[in-house]
Design a protein around this nucleic acid. Sequence first.
DNA 1: TGCCAGTTTCATTATTTCGTGAAATGATGA
DNA 2: TCATCATTTCACGAAATAATGAAACTGGCA
Lengths: 176, 176
Amino acid sequence: MATPSETQRDGDGADETLLRFVERFAMVLSGFGLARMPARVFAYVLADDADRYSAAELARALRVSPAAISGAVRTLVDAGLLGKEREPGARVDTYRIDDDDLWATIVAQRIDMVEPFERIAAEGVELLGADTPGGRRLRETQEFYAFMRAKFPEIITEWQEHKRALFGDGDPDHPA
Amino acid sequence: MATPSETQRDGDGADETLLRFVERFAMVLSGFGLARMPARVFAYVLADDADRYSAAELARALRVSPAAISGAVRTLVDAGLLGKEREPGARVDTYRIDDDDLWATIVAQRIDMVEPFERIAAEGVELLGADTPGGRRLRETQEFYAFMRAKFPEIITEWQEHKRALFGDGDPDHPA
DNA sequence: TGCCAGTTTCATTATTTCGTGAAATGATGA
DNA sequence: TCATCATTTCACGAAATAATGAAACTGGCA
């Protein structure tokens, strides 16, 4: 268990075992629509212990080019998965996970992704007429997505309750 | 409204307007992880009025090669989105949407897609230890996906109830 | 003003994905 | 058995995507 590599940090990258894990996690995440490099960065920031990273640190740790990090962190910040901050007095920006309600945030974002479905389905109903077989199928599709959109906030609330029940009311990072 | 193209069918493809709609619908669907060609086929079968299509008909209607259809319909059949049938006495297989509970089926399939997340997160907790910041974040991740997985069947049930309330108890394709 | 570390942009390269044509396969009916 | 038509498989070319190196740019400091 206590192989040297297990604690090896800095130098030319993070712990080998961790990196392997990050790669596989990123693979799973990319199945959910997140691009490869952002997925890596997200997985790493989620799994590694520090809670702030500069772009240069991420590049070193993941052994990828600073250029790749540049694009990836922008994607993640735009998506709201990563926060960009400047430590008082520091010369560089740092990135961190907006920890408190990570998954609630992610679900909340999915809400907006449902809208295009609703819109295109509605358009189809109009195009085809509500009295055609195709129109009826699209009507059902439209209703389904409307239903899902309405359901999301409820799911978020329930998750938050569930989380409190599991981890307690305090800071989830420091359970009693 | 009553342009000639609106009823033009057969020949070298389906109605132009419909095809454009199908393309855009497919675009939206592909944002949800469905590959391009399967998305096109699915969108077309959903929107067009006939309820059975041979592979050759799909190829002609969508103006793509039979080879492309071959791959696409297999994907869709494997995914449970399309049923493959043989009309009694016919010489070819036909494909149709398994209409009754289309969206319930799709949601049900998403359940299995959640499992890899749970698994990789659990693995991460074990790797990092539950007492590290990273381990705690992954623990929350794991719990979130477990929660979602448990939630799905409930969502499906509620959708089915909602649908009944909207369209009545009868055949949704032929509401009273 | 000029330098330095860090970051971003851009063009290029490598990889992957997508869809086609053509040949192989399979099934039907003469 | 052979001929015909639909479907599937496979290898190829085109297009999209991912990641890099190198150059340009930024803010802070001497």
